[in-house]
Amino acid sequence: MAERLLTFSIFRYNPATPEIAPRMQEFQLDETPNMTLFIALNRLREEQDPSLMFDFVCRAAVCGSCGMLINGRPGLACKTLTQDLPDRITLMPLPVFKLVGDLSVDTGVWFRQLNENLEAWIHTDKEFDPKSPEERMDNALAQEIYEAERCIECGSCIAACATANMRADFVGAAGLNRIARFLIDPRDERSPQQVFEVVGTDEGVFGCIGLMACDDICPMEIPLQQQLALVRRKMAWAGLKGK
């Protein structure tokens, strides 16, 4: 591979110095084999500008920390190889979420709020009995729940969503997928009606206008379109109609 000189154009803003307006800043870096944006950004920080803000945790595409707009498209920076990008790379923070600084945004608080709103936990009246064996579950069902549980709350689908960009309270694809996860789990004793009291509104299921940008953005390849269909189907069964 011929060595390339990459030009990065990176969004800069530090809330601690509001007198300096948000701006794009350019950096140059020589490309190395198998270079990811994780490697590139850390090199930029260590070698060129130690104030550069961005978030990585696992650097292995499993924790959801490093969502950003990479040449305009939301994705995980840690698993993005520079060799798949042109010489000029533009990096922007994800929209929708509150900016912490530069490329760092506050997805954590957003998702905590979402999970509170959706009451995204197992609702059960059963007391846990430490002495009895576990309840049985069919492995196929366990797999199905697992598939929906794989969301890493990276926020890419939210950032890509037209509705979420317009209305702050829309639960987005990640939220709908989370609802689907609890709907199919027999351990959660809520009836579909109870669930839809929370989500059978414009902020919930009916906010989606079907552009489905989320579906091919999700880095975990969760079939978001399918999950949305599942939620709507269950809702129809529950005898609920959209407003």
């Binding site: 936990w121 197992i122 059960t124 059963k126 846990f128 430490p130 064996p133 576990e134 309840e135 049985r136 579950m137 069919d138 492995n139 366990a142 797999q143 729940i145 697992y146 549980e149 789990d185 351990r187 959660d188």
Partner: peptide, 18 residues
């Protein structure tokens, strides 16, 4: 074993015996 089973009650989709 208690910990594993409690996590099952809290929603962990453990792989199951087939």
């Amino acid at each position: 074993p208690v910990a594993v089973r409690q996590m099952a009650q809290w929603g962990v989709p453990w792989s199951r015996v087939v």
